[in-house]
Design a binder for these strands. Structure first.
Length: 514
RNA sequence: GGCCCUAUCGUCUAACGGUCAGGACAUCAGAUUUUCAAUCUGGUAAUCAGGGUUCGAUUCCCUGUAGGGUCACCA
């Protein structure tokens, strides 16, 4: 667009505050910043906005870095991090504009704060919080913009000194120019224009050592040479404030792009109240990173054609801000499930098994590189056997956490199901027993207990019946205790002849005794 | 309430001002199957309303309506 821009290095940032678990909206913001930077051979910067000392916690920050790292969104500059070991890098940073934690940038902010005050672009305000608040309430009630009216705007130096001596509580406000329009070009929405009269003199710091968001953000974006600020739509109203601050400090404005919000089913901004919003919950449930990224990127972006499945690298190729939607997008778990299932089916069985093992903690424990022990029975099992039973359910899996409810039948001693389940369509008790006894007889005679042999022999009998289900359904339930499962032949093979026979006998006694 | 943003199937979305308004998820029906999946085939389903501009508006403009965001000594 503007020829001048071509020479500027593209630098984007993700600037979360570590005050809670990472939100799916945060992942998307990070992702879009990452994609835009990488697409343009630029830098992706991670800056931790932890100026709020009360709410910011180190553990949240760690979770944040870990999640970003897990997704493969590597930052060029920011706090150092490694998931490999429990290394605490502390204040070690990547990049030349460190520190990248706002809590460690006090000196920088102080410098600009002094400059703003000295040049009378900011001033001390001694009004009480309560007074300011009630005034805003009043203004709102008469239909005026609820702003600070500027009572302390023109305090003389002497008055300020006097109040300070009295140790009166104060804050530092920005002197917002009156009656001007702040215009900026949003790369997604086009021109946006806001009247300075609607924002008033806003607070930029509690004191010299406690700067606040709009100010620190403006300072850092400028100091860190951020070229494109890509963030959620909820920041549109902060943008004119930051632009004014930037101008007052003598900086160029970056380009802005405000992303549409991610919405809940009620079409409201997705918030913690809506149940699952933290990415950790999705990760724990067994959604794959590639699925999560693929799904999230589609919330507000498309490649311009019908393709929907993309790897991170393909996304870097395809990404463009022009294809970003203006309206908010509802977070629809059903589609996430579909995409996740798709990626799950693409995994090799070895990969899938490794991914599933953590979800089987209740049933098995690792005893060596290649073996596990079934907790309930103490039996040793091999990883190959585990791979086989997992592969039986690969195409049914929507998320990893579901694996245990599919394959628990292999890992527990006694099946627990009701007699009713054994019944196929119109069968009565004696027919069920008869059916199970046929299975028992056939299976007992098979020497080489493979699913192929089992199927072949069982089919010989099943085909004599009106419906194959008459033989196969009771057998399935006897072996699995479930109303849906993988084919019983494969289940039988993996269960082994002994257990298979045991379970059929058990089913017969259930019918006889209940 | 002020200001700002937004508006295509239930959901995510496509459509140089000219398309039978396309695709995907979900849903429904069928095929396949011993069940459940997976897979394949097909169906239902949308341009918020009213005015302009135009030979022709989903598309451009205005008004209305609806929804959302934001108005912290949080970020």
């Amino acid at each position: 667009m503007t020829p001048k821009k071509e020479s500027i290095r593209i630098r984007t940032r993700y600037a979360p505050s570590p005050t809670g678990p990472m939100h799916v909206g945060g992942v998307r913001t990070a992702l879009f910043n990452y994609l835009f930077a990488k697409k343009n051979n630029g830098d992706f910067i991670l800056r931790v906005e932890d100026t709020d000392k009360e709410r910011s916690k180190k553990e949240w920050e760690n979770q944040l870095l870990k999640a970003l790292d897990w997704f493969g969104l590597k930052w060029n500059e920011g706090p150092m991090f490694s998931d490999q070991k429990e290394i605490d890098f502390g204040s070690h940073y990547l990049g030349e504009y460190s520190p990248y934690r706002q809590s460690e940038r006090g000196e920088v902010y102080k410098k600009y704060l002094e400059k703003l005050i000295k040049e009378e672009n900011a001033y001390y305000c001694f009004c009480s919080k309560e007074d300011v608040e009630s005034q805003k309430q009043y203004l709102m009630s008469i239909g005026e913009p609820p702003i600070y009216l500027g009572k302390c705007r023109n305090l003389s130096k002497e008055q300020v000194e006097e109040f300070k001596k009295q140790k009166k509580e104060c804050v530092i406000r920005f002197r917002t120019p009156e009656n001007i329009k702040i215009k900026f070009n949003d790369l997604i929405r086009g021109g946006i224009e806001i009247d300075s009269g609607t924002m008033g003199d806003f607070v930029i710091a509690k004191d010299m050592d406690n700067p606040l968001y709009n100010f620190t953000c403006a300072v850092d974006d400028a100091e860190m040479k951020i070229s494109h600020v890509i963030r959620g739509e909820d920041h549109i109203s902060n943008t004119p404030k930051q632009i004014l601050l930037l101008r007052a400090m003598g900086f160029e404005e970056p380009q802005y792009a405000h992303l549409p919000l991610i919405l809940n089913e009620q079409r409201k901004k997705l918030s913690k109240r809506d149940g699952k919003t933290s990415v950790d919950e999705y990760i724990n449930e067994g959604y794959l990173k590639e699925a999560l990224i693929n799904f999230i990127v589609l919330l507000g972006w498309n490649p311009g054609d019908n393709r929907e499945i993309f790897s991170l690298n393909q996304l870097i190729e395809e990404f463009s801000l022009e294809k970003i939607q203006k309206a908010g997008a509802v977070f629809n778990v059903e589609k996430l499930d579909w995409i996740n299932g798709l990626y799950l089916r693409k995994k090799t069985i070895k990969e899938l098994t490794m991914l599933c093992i953590p979800y089987l903690n209740n049933f098995i424990e690792k005893t060596s590189m290649e073996t596990f022990k079934i907790k309930e029975t103490g039996e040793e099992i091999s990883i190959e056997w585990l791979e086989k039973i997992i592969s039986l359910y690969q195409e049914r899996l929507k998320k990893l956490s579901e694996i245990s409810e599919f394959i628990d039948l292999f890992l527990i001693k006694e099946l627990n199901y009701s007699k009713e389940l054994l019944k196929w369509k119109e069968m009565n008790d004696s027919q069920i027993i008869q059916s199970l006894e046929i299975s028992l007889m056939v299976l007992s005679q098979i020497e080489n207990f493979t699913s192929e042999n089992i199927q072949k022999e069982l089919f010989k009998e099943a085909e004599k019946m009106a419906n194959k289900g008459n033989l196969l359904w009771p057998l399935r339930v006897a072996l699995t205790g479930k109303n849906s499962s993988a084919p019983p032949f494969q289940i039988a093979e993996l269960l082994g002849k002994e257990k298979t026979i045991q379970r059929i006998k058990k089913a017969i006694t259930i019918i006889e005794h209940e």
